[in-house]
Design a protein around this nucleic acid. Sequence first.
DNA 1: AGTGATACTGAGATTCGTTCTCAAATGACG
DNA 2: CGTCATTTGAGAACGAATCTCAGTATCACT
Lengths: 146, 146
Amino acid sequence: MTDQTDLRLTPQRMAVLEVLRAAHDHPTAAEVYEQVRRTSPRIGSATVYRTLALLVSTGQALELSLGGGAAARYDANTCRHDHAVCEGCGRAVDLDHPVPDGMMAEIARRSGFAITGYDLQFRGICPDCQAQGAGSIRVGGPASPQ
Amino acid sequence: MTDQTDLRLTPQRMAVLEVLRAAHDHPTAAEVYEQVRRTSPRIGSATVYRTLALLVSTGQALELSLGGGAAARYDANTCRHDHAVCEGCGRAVDLDHPVPDGMMAEIARRSGFAITGYDLQFRGICPDCQAQGAGSIRVGGPASPQ
DNA sequence: AGTGATACTGAGATTCGTTCTCAAATGACG
DNA sequence: CGTCATTTGAGAACGAATCTCAGTATCACT
Ligand SMILES: [Zn+2]
Ligand SMILES: [Zn+2]
Ligand SMILES: [Zn+2]
Ligand SMILES: [Zn+2]
């Protein structure tokens, strides 16, 4: 778990961070790996997974679990924001929405929890999928669990 | 995906539903399996997984993805409700909270999505874990991913 | 440069939750 | 009963994520 000791900024880590920063579509670890490979063909998947975990633990990326058995997705946009997930194509778009203030305090009071944060995602059908698959959802069917 | 045809209420399915109804702690599929085994030792895990998926698809149970790489959890309480998940012990407690009305409409308007629902979970430390692990979280460390 | 300590990498094996496969069992109904 | 569709269970297969470990890179100090 890499203590708070050294922490080197290696070419591999830079490559991963670069790819993640460039991607605005909440890629999975596998997708990041795929992409990083194009510029660093010798990188291993373990390194990508390790680096993503490192970025998350140092607050430079967010890990999203967008429901279902879907793989975790990563987001270089570390400002608090929520997502709308399309049940047709699996895409997730960012939402910038005012969070009901006082809600967390209320939850904390009622549950006795020390609330540290929350995750909110909306489910629905994106405009694209509404347009084409008017009747039959999940035509091209990504978004499928494992 | 089991058309809308027959759909039998077999002893196995009854057993799974019974266990899920009796459990109020959002068990994972593996935990349901474990439990069902006590009364139906010959049941297979595939049947449990299939039945849980069936219950979810017929609206008799909810499937929760409480973040991280944790396994899916199931909930026989199908009334809309949210959860507070303890980052110490992994437990999830039910929350009955008034959902900010008009929020979904607003999200729908801004994103163009046809919103069908949402998932909201709060993260925090439960009263128990606050009491004992005052300083060091995740001592006994369940809640760990796969 | 040389030396040792420490951090990092990558290939492949491993883990583990979940789904798939398919032959056998079950149940509905005439 | 006989037929036919559904369901079951054992085990194989799958896939995401993690672990192992020998080899490599980088650092600190000489
Ligand atoms: Zn879509
Ligand atoms: Zn985002
Ligand atoms: Zn706890
Ligand atoms: Zn619940």
